[in-house]
């Protein structure tokens, strides 16, 4: 599903954030991406989401060579990738419903379908009753669940999460991880960057460990 072959990433004139990275993630797999702060976890996920492009090497996602993907196709590609961030990236002047509906509105879904799928996604993350609230009125864990609902609302085959539990206490963190497990159980490929070793030691999934931009 996700394949890196000898990928290098150099930000403007700096040393390499990623160097000579090769690995593969199967369809339907769930894996953790670990490593110290600055190891290159975010950079790796950004390459998959095409927020950044590799300096050399190839990135393949869902049998598509991202190195070759023209710029105008990027938005359509991103619709097939669910993204979850540490700081949620919610729009604070819109309701929970409108936040979750955003990917569907962008994809041009019709009104009834939007309502149906937003409620299904909110139900999955246990926030059905809060759809009229503004994000500000929710707790950190709830905001993160809104972010997750938004990431899965258009049923992407791949779900990426960058430190999704970074701001949450251990109990809430575990809850969030169980949520990801549920999506993985219905076939979604899940890739989660985290440096919370304590948390992932409680879960038995593959680890891909980075150390200074290389596989450790």
């Amino acid at each position: 599903m996700i394949r890196f072959t000898d990928v290098h990433k150099r930000y403007t004139n700096q040393y390499e954030a990623l160097s000579g990275l090769s690995f593969e993630l199967d369809k339907g797999e769930m894996a953790f991406l670990t490593g110290h702060s600055g190891a290159g976890k975010s950079t790796l996920l950004k390459l998959i989401a095409l927020i950044e492009r590799s300096s050399s090497g190839q990135v393949w996602v869902n049998n598509q060579n991202l190195t070759r993907l023209p710029k105008w196709k990027v938005p359509y590609y991103r619709r097939k990738i669910g993204l979850v961030f540490q700081d949620h990236n919610l729009l604070h002047d819109r309701t929970v419903f409108d936040n979750v509906a955003l990917p569907l509105i962008i994809a041009g879904e019709n009104h009834r379908e939007i309502g149906r799928r937003v409620r299904a996604a909110l139900d999955k993350v246990g926030l059905l009753g809060k759809e009229r609230n503004l994000p500000i009125a929710l707790s950190g864990g709830e905001q993160q669940r809104v972010g997750i609902a938004r990431a899965v609302v258009n049923r992407p085959p791949v779900l990426l999460a960058d430190e999704p539990t970074g701001n949450l206490d251990p109990e809430l963190s575990l809850e969030i991880m169980h949520l990801f497990e549920q999506f993985n159980q219905v076939g979604v490929t899940v890739f989660i960057a985290t440096h919370d070793h304590e948390l992932i030691s409680r879960l038995s999934y593959r680890h891909i460990a980075l150390h200074q931009g290389r596989l450790a």
Binding site: P75, Y76, L83, N89, L91, L102, I106, R150
Partner: peptide, 16 residues
């Protein structure tokens, strides 16, 4: 700007 970035992150085209 924030809104535009989020829209682009979830697959919004420039036209959108």
């Amino acid at each position: 700007q924030t809104e535009i970035k989020v829209i682009k992150l979830v697959g919004g085209t420039n036209a959108f």
